[in-house]
């Protein structure tokens, strides 16, 4: 499991680099973010929550049951929307109200 960064969208703000708990994301000379150590990702998704232009996607490796879906979050009307781009091209979303507690 790891992340991928779409450099055509990245604006080089460096927020993902700053927040990664493993300092695994670096900024290249063209001011584009890239993950230098993809196998060292813990899967916390902090970078995805920080990215202001939604350039980062989270995915599961095949070794833990990954089937090619890509996931990111966006803030929509005060809700956190998790967007799952499934490998068959379909999209599923789950909205979470940050002001609401988990039920479990």
């Amino acid at each position: 499991m790891s992340i991928s960064i779409d450099q055509s969208i990245c604006i080089g703000c460096g927020k993902c680099h700053d927040v990664c708990p493993g300092t695994l994301i670096k900024i290249n000379e063209q001011r584009k973010a890239f993950i230098k150590y993809p196998k060292d990702c813990w899967g916390c998704t902090s970078c995805i929550k920080e990215c202001p232009v939604h350039a980062i996607r989270f995915f599961l490796g095949e070794d833990i049951g990954g089937k090619g879906s890509k996931v990111h979050t966006e803030k929509v009307n005060g809700l956190v929307r998790w967007i799952f781009e499934l490998s068959d091209g379909s999209i599923k979303t789950i909205d979470i109200d940050p002001k609401e507690s988990n039920k479990y």
Partner: peptide, 21 residues
């Protein structure tokens, strides 16, 4: 639905795994 949300708030890999598998 509550479980899918709860895991997104602490271990998002599990929710993805459920959705994929």
């Amino acid at each position: 639905e509550s479980l899918l949300k709860a895991y997104l708030n602490m271990a998002p890999s599990q929710t993805i795994r459920w959705i994929e598998n």
